[in-house]
Computed example of a mutant assay.
Amino acid sequence: MTAASNEPVLLRRDEGRVAILTLNRPKAMNALSGELIDALQAEFDRLAKDREIRCVVIEAQGRAFSTGHDLREVASSRDHAFHHDLLTRCSAMMMAIRALPQPVIAKVQAIATAAGCQLVAACDLAVASSDATFATSGINNGLFCGTPSVAVGRNVGSKRALDMLFTGQFIDAATALRDGLVSRVVPPAELDRETMTFAQHIAAQPPQQIAEGKAMFHKHMEMDLAQAYAIATEFMAGAIMTEDAQAGIDAFVNKKPKPEWKGR
């Protein structure tokens, strides 16, 4: 489907407890315009307060997942304040993904470059078609991908990230999986089904444990080993005492049916 000029740049539909956000600028290769960045931020703000949605999928219409910032928009101004504001809003939107209580899955059907690759890296998980390709290709246009380097570097490590950043060369889905940029790679025909199965499985898990576990994980990944174990130990000691954990452990020990999770 091709988006007309009067169509929204971002679509949302909910399937049970899974929210699907669809980048809807296919003619522009789903470039992250200021309008699309703001639309994503607005949805993340809504999802942060949504107690019914337990997993989020970000997908895209057309031939690209996203080719990054809209270079026509970038070229429209030489005002530093304009570009600083645009990049600040984009960085805030990326950080909002981490702050969400729900896990966020990027569903990558095709090319993801520059800030589009950053969006994949910013998500908690990513399922890619075997046809998908990835690059931090700004250097090919004379611009080092500074903000994409933050998320990509935290996914793949410094040497692999700098290889991508210095060369602008593409990697295929198998390489992205090997390097940790994506979680799973599936054949193109199975991308929709596999991503939704993955999302629905996560959505069926105890939501308080998922939300608090996500926050704890991302926090300890920025710490040294001793600090990480200290915060994880504190988390688990408290988690064991929650109603969901007590019910789940009791069901396992006493061979009872899986309980209904109470939610957050």
Rank of each mutant, 00 (worst) to 15 (best):
T195I: 05
M241P: 00
E243W: 09
F217A: 08
P207E: 14
P207M: 13
I231N: 06
E260Y: 05
A75Y: 11
A126L: 04
C117Y: 03
V150W: 01
S76G: 11
E73C: 04
E190T: 06
G34L: 11
D244W: 03
I111S: 12
R17K: 15
Q209R: 12
L143W: 10
Q118V: 00
C117H: 00
D192Q: 15
C145M: 07
R72H: 14
F166P: 00
L181S: 03
K107L: 12
T88F: 11
L87S: 07
P259K: 07
S183I: 05
A92S: 09
V186F: 09
S158V: 12
S129C: 05
T175P: 04
A232T: 15
A28N: 11
D224P: 05
F82N: 04
T22R: 09
I105G: 08
S5R: 10
D179P: 01
A176E: 06
S77Q: 03
N140S: 14
Y229V: 06
H220T: 15
T22V: 14
A4Y: 15
E73L: 02
I58D: 14
Q246A: 07
T2W: 09
Q246H: 03
G238L: 00
R72W: 08
N6Q: 11
I111Q: 13
T22S: 13
D79L: 07
T195Y: 00
D250A: 13
M95K: 12
H84K: 15
I105L: 02
N140Y: 10
I210S: 08
T195H: 04
A96H: 10
H218E: 13
L162R: 04
D38N: 15
L125S: 06
E15N: 01
V57W: 06
M196R: 14
A19C: 04
P206A: 03
K258H: 05
A203N: 08
L36D: 07
I111K: 12
F198W: 00
L87K: 08
L162V: 00
V150G: 03
L71R: 14
A251C: 06
P206C: 09
K256P: 09
S5K: 04
Y229S: 12
P26E: 01
Q208Y: 08
V182N: 04
L191H: 10
E7C: 08
H201A: 14
H80S: 11
G142D: 02
I37E: 11
G153M: 01
H83F: 09
I97F: 00
P259G: 04
G213R: 02
N30G: 10
Q61V: 09
R154L: 02
M94D: 11
T195V: 06
L47N: 03
A128N: 02
S137N: 15
F252M: 15
L181I: 09
Y229T: 13
G62P: 14
V253R: 08
R25V: 10
M216V: 13
A106H: 03
L177E: 10
A176C: 11
A135L: 05
Q61L: 13
I53S: 09
I53G: 06
V182I: 08
D124K: 02
L191N: 13
T113C: 03
A39S: 12
G16T: 04
Q169I: 11
D50P: 06
L225G: 02
A75V: 08
G146W: 07
G248C: 13
T88I: 14
V182L: 03
A122S: 10
C55L: 04
D124S: 01
A19Q: 04
F217K: 10
A114S: 12
A135I: 08
R78M: 15
Q205W: 12
K219Y: 07
A173E: 08
